[in-house]
């Protein structure tokens, strides 16, 4: 029983890790390449989830929603980059924090104005709502497995793009020496806009996949943003590999810790202490992990090689 619970929570952790990866992948590229703190990255996740609920309501198909979603999120990302982010590249971090904080306020209210204050419903289609037996007598939701699969596919695609394609080469070059890449005749501004748009698509994809699993409401992006920050701090700014490893680790730690820690504590202390301290400790677990890793590796696990 305990083993089954552990496996189930482990998979849930993987699935949460996939969401974290999709969000932090874009964020870490923006931080690493453009050296911009973008608090509003969580808003892209939220916007993605809202669009998903609307598209799904209109078309009734998750696949069609996904296809509609990609160009829309790309456009949203490009507009944000052109209107606000672009003016912040030469500013200091304080300005970037405050301006993107302003963006968060704007988007959180904007979705309330457009979609109303109630949470948006999105129920899974039949073919995704079933269970599958991963082990004998251990049913697990198909949808969560699909999420893990999609996330892994995106991660593989992103690695391929970064290491094998011309655009990936330019992204890496831009991260290590921006002026030089510009001097060699590459339109670095256009590259930035594209990277930001790509990050928006990933965040939107996470929002779409998360929409059936959580209530879609204003402010959901910021909860994910905090985790994404932890992921990037642990993984190392600008490192896709670090983001992937840290996302999965954090996802599993967070999910498994929350369910296992109170049980484990029962073994050591009496039930009353475990009931009070268990949830409190579980909520701090991820941050304690971050502090410990940071203490030994201040640059994160996979510091990106920048010039």
């Amino acid at each position: 029983m305990t083993l089954l619970l552990f496996i189930e929570q482990f998979l849930n952790g993987m699935q949460f890790g996939v969401f974290l990866f999709l969000i932090s992948a874009g964020l870490t590229l923006v931080l690493g390449i453009m050296n911009v703190v973008n608090l509003a990255h969580g808003s892209l996740y939220m916007i993605g989830a809202y669009f998903a609920s609307t598209f799904y309501g209109l078309t009734g198909s998750l696949i069609v929603s996904l296809v509609l979603m990609i160009p829309v999120m790309l456009l949203v990302g490009i507009v944000i980059e052109l209107v606000v982010l672009r003016t912040l590249y030469d500013r200091d971090h304080m300005d970037q924090v405050l301006a993107t904080f302003g963006l968060i306020l704007f988007f959180n209210e904007l979705v309330r104005i457009i979609w109303g204050v109630e949470a948006q419903p999105l129920t899974l289609p039949m073919w995704l709502s079933g269970n599958v037996e991963i082990l004998p007598d251990a049913p697990y939701p198909v949808y969560r497995l699909v999420v893990i699969g999609v996330g892994m596919a995106v991660a593989a695609g992103l690695f391929w793009m970064i290491t094998k394609t011309r655009m990936g080469m330019l992204i890496r070059a831009g991260a290590s020496n921006r002026p030089m890449v510009g001097a060699l005749g590459v339109n670095i501004r256009f590259l930035y806009t594209m990277v930001f748009g790509l990050g928006a698509v990933f965040a939107g994809l996470a929002g779409l996949m998360a929409a059936p699993l959580q209530s879609v409401e204003s402010g959901i992006g910021e909860d994910m943003l905090i985790f994404a920050f932890v992921v990037i701090v642990i993984g190392g700014i600008g490192s896709i590999r670090g983001a992937l490893v840290a996302s999965i680790v954090i996802g599993i730690f967070e999910t498994v810790g929350r369910s296992i820690l109170p049980v484990l504590m029962l073994e050591v202390v009496d039930s009353e202490t475990a009931q009070t301290a268990g949830p409190a400790l579980a909520s701090m677990l991820v941050y304690i992990l971050m502090a410990v890793i940071l203490f030994f590796k201040p640059q994160g696990l996979f510091p990106a090689r920048t010039g």
């Binding site: 931080l31 703190v37 971090h93 905090i226 932890v230 701090v233 409190a280 701090m284």
Partner: peptide, 23 residues
């Protein structure tokens, strides 16, 4: 730099969540 911003942010949130879980 950016690390400092993100870490102070995350550590403060840790105490926020701790406060929420202190029934």
């Amino acid at each position: 730099g950016i690390y400092f911003i993100m870490i102070t942010f995350a550590l403060a949130q840790m105490f926020y969540f701790l406060g929420i879980s202190l029934e």
